[in-house]
């Protein structure tokens, strides 16, 4: 089976910013993404957990999208202004996908 080169962009972002981020991804031409819940973690602001929380202000989401290598820069440029001011981590990894036309 033929596999195609792609980039996997994973963005861990404050939950409150999730919709704004996904709007930017759509505007940048990203054809699809997945949002995963993050149950807890630790970082420069200390340890945190979603358990028992009722506030939307706390908690993080993971947004994962796969893009063609030539679209990576445009995608990152689109989301950078928002991520610059907010808590979050962006990582990009090389991957392969089966159906390149979907990305």
């Amino acid at each position: 089976m033929e596999m195609h080169e792609a980039k996997r962009v994973e963005i861990i972002i404050e939950k409150i910013m999730e919709n704004r981020l996904t709007d930017l991804l759509i505007e940048a031409g990203v054809k699809g993404f997945s949002v995963l819940p993050v149950s807890g973690g630790s970082g420069s602001s200390g340890h945190w957990s979603r358990e028992g929380q009722i506030s939307r202000a706390q908690g993080m989401s993971a947004v994962v999208c796969l893009v063609k290598p030539e679209r990576l820069e445009k995608t990152l440029d689109a989301i950078f202004p928002m991520l610059d001011r907010h808590i979050g981590v962006v990582s990009v990894t090389d991957t392969k996908v089966m159906r390149a036309e979907l990305f």
């Binding site: 404050e14 409150i16 704004r20 200390g46 202000a57 706390q58």
Partner: peptide, 17 residues
């Protein structure tokens, strides 16, 4: 509940802790 969420969006520089 409501205000921390608004502050995180509008003023991320403010320390939520």
């Amino acid at each position: 509940i409501a205000v921390p969420a608004a502050m995180r969006v509008a003023v991320p520089e403010a320390n939520p802790a």
